[in-house]
Computed example of a mutant assay.
Amino acid sequence: MAAPSFSAADYLGALQALMPRGRIWPRDVSSVQAKVLAGLTKVYEAQNQRANNLLVDAFPQTALELLPEWEATLGLTATSAGPAATFAARQALVVARLIGANGIAAGDFADYAALLGYSITVAGNAPFRCGQSRAGAHVGDVDRMFEWIVTAHALPSMPFGSYGPALLQQEMQRLAPPYGFLKFIFN
């Protein structure tokens, strides 16, 4: 159900209907009383439209006027999604931050990246262990166990414009556990 939208004429009719009856309370639109009421109804119409906009702005996915408020609440700035970010990009970043990653597993990173408009895969490494690793596996140090390889697949639309890869890296680094190392590959 859409929010009701009332015009100044609707409000004028309502105000005139609330007036007492009698000769000194004319209903004629050319009367002084009707002109005074008509001056008030323009404000009521504007307030009605603003209230309807508030219903839209209450949700970050559709926010326009309150987008800066949503961003400030989450510690973002207008340029967090890039120097020339669109409203859609800024809204997507706010929604992603609100919904966020629900954990630090590879699947959680992929879900978070999808909220931003990216398709990624995350693979982890494990150090060589005698009896557990396969032949031909990379022999490396223990730090490789905490390295995740984030592969961003074909970014045809570049959801965040030319700032695209930088935003993905910034957000993934923010979510990474403190002991983790991220390596990015952009296909």
Rank of each mutant, 00 (worst) to 15 (best):
V94F: 05
N52S: 09
W70C: 14
A92T: 02
A81T: 08
A63V: 06
L98G: 03
M145W: 06
Y163W: 14
A14F: 11
Y44S: 05
F128R: 09
M145T: 09
S162K: 10
G103D: 08
F109V: 06
P83R: 14
R174D: 11
R21M: 02
I24L: 12
A3T: 14
S119N: 14
S5I: 14
P177L: 15
P165S: 09
L18V: 08
E71K: 14
P159V: 12
N125Q: 07
A114I: 03
R97L: 07
D143E: 09
V142L: 11
L74P: 06
R134Q: 13
P60G: 06
N48W: 04
Q61I: 10
A14K: 09
G180Y: 03
Y179D: 11
F128T: 05
A96W: 03
A3K: 15
N53K: 03
T77D: 06
S119I: 06
R90H: 07
P20T: 00
E65K: 10
V150T: 03
S80G: 13
N102I: 05
T86H: 04
Q33R: 02
S119L: 08
A106W: 08
L15D: 00
I24R: 08
A14H: 09
Y163T: 05
A17I: 00
G75T: 14
A105K: 10
S80D: 13
V29L: 14
Q132P: 00
G117M: 01
A105M: 08
D143H: 11
N48C: 13
Q132K: 07
G103P: 07
Q132L: 11
A17L: 07
G82I: 10
V94G: 03
Q61L: 13
L155H: 06
Q47M: 13
N187P: 04
L18T: 06
L64F: 15
G82T: 13
A8N: 05
Q132G: 01
W25V: 00
A46S: 11
G13M: 07
A166H: 11
A63I: 05
P26H: 00
R144Q: 11
R21C: 00
G136W: 06
S31R: 06
E65A: 10
L116W: 04
A34S: 12
F186M: 05
R174P: 04
T86R: 07
A3D: 15
L18S: 10
A101T: 07
R90P: 07
P127L: 00
N52T: 05
A9N: 09
T86E: 09
T77V: 04
A89W: 01
W25T: 00
P68T: 11
L116Q: 04
G161W: 15
G164E: 14
H138F: 14
P4A: 15
G124Q: 09
D143K: 10
T41H: 01
E69W: 13
I120P: 02
A14C: 02
P177R: 14
R21H: 04
F184H: 05
V36A: 06
D141P: 10
N52A: 15
G75E: 11
